[in-house]
Design a protein around this nucleic acid. Structure first.
Length: 262
DNA sequence: TGTGATGTTGAATG
DNA sequence: GCATTCAACATCAC
């Protein structure tokens, strides 16, 4: 479930389990998700390195190594971390595993293999290369409003564009639109200035709130945001409107028809 | 059995 | 070059 708040939890999990440890060697079971070198070269590059710090930006998690290079983890749709020591705790979908010198292991699991794992010599150059926008927890409303000017695409397409703002994913984008009472399919040039300000404000609030409330890795409360209303046919707030499912910006989209302006 | 899924990319189009 | 759209990626769960 990796959108920004989830990756924030991955970061915490990673820090608590793996920071300061030294990689004795790496087992690559499937190098499909390693995007910039073959499995053996990847394993070779990490061998003997100590993990000294971590940095999250949007949905990207960078693990800084003691040679100044980085191990980049992007979790795709189904990426996950699994820290363990007993071999029987190895996950079914483990794609590679860092074996630390203390005997513990950090497995990277990913059933669908949409994750993107890279060994980077220059983290900043990579961020520049993919034009990754600023982190959603690190911007203000003015920045977002300014980015909206002149754009004609859907609200949802805007929120999902990681080059504008990094961290918002499909579920949180719906949540933000719901809070603004705006249909995700509305186009930016159809919004009033007030609505643009509201959209910017809610984007920051939702992402900040979700990141702050994430209690612990894999332990999301049932009453979190979209859980409350992300059900087709469900009656909207105060009995107004009804939840419908549609497709916006190529993604499955839920909104409350009759409650959110179209 | 067919369908859709939390994300990104690269090609195609305007 | 920029903005936007959309299919493709690989596999599993329902």
């Amino acid at each position: 479930m990796p959108e920004l708040p989830e990756v924030n939890n991955f970061k915490r999990y990673f820090n608590e389990t793996s920071l300061g440890k030294t990689i004795e060697n790496v087992d690559v079971h499937d190098d499909k998700i390693i995007r910039n070198m073959p499995g053996p070269a990847f394993a070779d590059a990490l061998k003997g390195r100590k993990i000294v710090s971590s940095l999250r930006r949007g949905k990207y998690l960078f693990a800084r190594l003691d040679n100044g290079h980085d191990l980049l983890l992007h979790f795709g749709m189904t990426g996950d971390l699994n820290y363990y020591s007993a071999p029987e705790d190895k996950g079914r979908y483990e794609r590679f595993v860092l074996n630390f010198t203390d005997g513990d292991k950090l497995g990277f699991e990913d059933p669908r293999k949409f994750a993107r794992i890279l060994y980077l010599e220059d983290r900043d150059a990579y961020i520049k290369e993919i034009k990754l926008g600023p982190d959603a927890l690190d911007i203000d409303g003015d920045y977002l409003v300014q980015k909206m000017t002149g754009k004609k695409g859907s609200i949802k397409g805007f929120l999902l564009n990681q080059q504008i703002l990094s961290g918002v994913g499909n579920l949180y984008a719906d949540e933000i639109c719901y809070r603004c009472r705006l249909s995700p399919a509305l186009r930016l040039n159809e919004l009033t200035e007030d609505e643009k300000c509201l959209l910017a404000k809610q984007t920051i609030e939702v992402m900040t709130g979700a990141a702050a409330n994430a209690p612990y890795y894999k332990d999301y409360p049932e009453n979190w945001y979209w859980h409350v209303w992300r059900t087709e046919g469900k009656s909207g707030p105060e009995g107004i409107g009804e939840v419908v499912v549609t497709k916006v910006a190529g993604r499955t989209t839920y909104f409350v028809k009759g409650w959110q302006r179209e």
